[in-house]
Amino acid sequence: MPSLSEVQAAFSAAIFDPAAAPPRGVVGPDRRPAPRRFGVYRNNVVSALGNAIAGSFPAVRRIVGEDFFRAMARAYVLAEPPISPVLLDYGTTFPDFIAGFAPAASLPYLHDVARIERLWRESYHAEEAPALAPDALASVPEDELPRIAFSLHPSLRLARSRYAALTVWRMNATDEPVTPVDISAAEDALIVRPGAEVEVRKVPPGGAAFVTALAAGETLLAAAETAQAADARFDLAGNIAGLLAAGALRDIRRA
């Protein structure tokens, strides 16, 4: 008799290979091979994992339509099944998979929309933390301001795109009718959940470089210089006010 480990190795290999015959020793009540019965498990696995992906990427699903999405999700499930039983984390690599999925090549912004949805989900499930009060900087002496740094809110995520991925995502995140979009305008999205609701905002010029520098621990002055270098239109006061209003900052750290 095969060992339990051998039975399960054969069973799981046949689950992920649609062309494979059911493993030996798996039978119906008449003790005869039962491919259709085994197919129930194959179908359950692929559809359960596909449903997990479908639930996490509703805008991508709306953009490409149900049939295309199901085929793409199925290809992903077979290529990259989850390693953890916590399916909240499944789909982290789906945006990259879409970027390399040839049938979706005509929608070059699609993987960026997927990235917004993935990061939205991470933000939704992120650790809880109070956000810095909007007037918190008032208590910092002016001469110290350039040297302070920030820890960012644990739910903060940044999704950068060469396309108008944020506009496309927003339009497809609800059932509202869609209108034509100029996708050539690059957009960066700030995603944060300081309270119960995930909020997604468009990042002003230079803002993404600024947030990235702050996340790396740079001081306010250094991060402002980094952002200025990235985009000459960078506006420090406007960006700081925007981050505070969004609840994107957690604490002030003094050097």
């Binding site: 399960q8 190795a9 799981s12 498990y41 696995v45 359960a48 099944p81 953890s84 039983p85």
Partner: peptide
């Protein structure tokens, strides 16, 4: 689960 793969079904 088998090896490192989670199949999300009760096998």
């Amino acid at each position: 689960s088998h090896d490192t793969v989670f199949m999300s079904d009760l096998l």
